[in-house]
Design a protein around this nucleic acid. Structure first.
Length: 268
DNA sequence: AGTACCACCTGACGGC
DNA sequence: TGCCGTCAGGTGGTAC
């Protein structure tokens, strides 16, 4: 579930509660979550370091350390960050814990183990290595067109492809296509100038509104404007726009929710 | 270049 | 009650 808006909220949370603090001790509770380094190596790179800045690219959160290097966090489907003070509040599925001087703790939580925690020497090199495209947030129309340019695939898998544009996953791709009234299987070549503009506009709007309303938080879906698909991702749910029925299909290998009436097949 | 499929991983849920 | 299959979905690998 953590896609760009959620990770942006995590970043702000980390900024508020952990930035400027010095990591006194690192506890790796489950070494499987580490991205290609041992718990000892990871501890050595983090302990005694101060968190000086944060940066997000797509679904990745990067935290700069004083004296060089970065902590890298990826959240998979079920990852989260939790700050707590009392030992008793250590949340379940806490995989890596950072204990700061002064008694505050930051937990990287992940029920399923699909995310990764690691280190990198350089943030830009990390982004290159992971072959991430430009970050979706604040991507201007020209850059958006460039990113999608010359491709033939269907619009949904293109949106979800992190090497094309970084940050959009299954849930937000569906929302963007729903708002832009585009069928998920529409070929990029069939979008036309108008379709591309609409897609870009809705991508920007949905990401911005989602961040503003606290994506990923408990009552997020209740705070969304009327007419969003996100709270109604259920087969047979009523489309808030036309009263039709929300249906499912497979696109880009993922279950896709859409309204066949509002998002007609191209040419159909 | 694209697609298709598998694996990783755990919890929820439906069927029997 | 409890076992089993399936699904959720981000990423990465491989085969075609």
């Amino acid at each position: 579930m953590p896609e760009l808006p959620d990770v942006e909220i995590y970043r702000r949370y980390l900024d508020e509660h952990a930035l400027g603090k010095t990591v006194q001790q690192v506890r790796v509770q489950d070494a499987r979550i580490l991205d290609g380094l041992s718990p000892d190596a990871f501890r050595q790179r983090l302990e005694g370091r101060r968190l000086t800045a944060s940066r997000r690219h797509g679904k990745h959160l990067l935290v700069e350390l004083d004296r060089g290097g970065w902590l890298t966090l990826h959240f998979g489907m079920t990852g989260d960050l939790v700050v707590f003070e009392n030992e008793a509040d250590d949340p379940p599925y806490d995989r890596v814990r950072f204990d700061f001087a002064g008694g505050r703790h930051l937990a990287y939580v992940n029920r399923r183990m699909l995310g990764r925690v690691g280190c990198a020497d350089d943030a830009d090199a990390f982004i290159d290595e992971h072959e991430l495209g430009p970050d979706a947030l604040g991507l201007d129309l020209q850059a958006f067109k460039t990113a999608l340019g010359g491709r033939r695939r269907d619009v949904k898998s293109a949106l979800m492809d992190q090497s094309t544009i970084a940050g959009i996953g299954n849930i937000y791709a569906d929302e963007i296509l729903y708002q832009a009234r585009l069928h998920p299987k529409t070929g990029l070549g069939d979008l036309g100038e108008e379709g591309l503009k609409r897609l870009h506009h809705e991508m920007c709007r949905i990401l911005a509104v989602s961040i503003e309303r606290g994506a990923g938080s408990e009552r997020f879906t209740e705070r969304l404007p009327e007419g969003w698909l996100l709270p109604h991702r259920e087969k047979g749910a009523r489309c808030r726009r036309c009263g039709g029925s929300i249906e499912t299909m497979k696109a880009g290998g993922r279950t896709t929710y859409f309204c066949p009436r509002c998002q007609p097949e191209p040419g159909g």
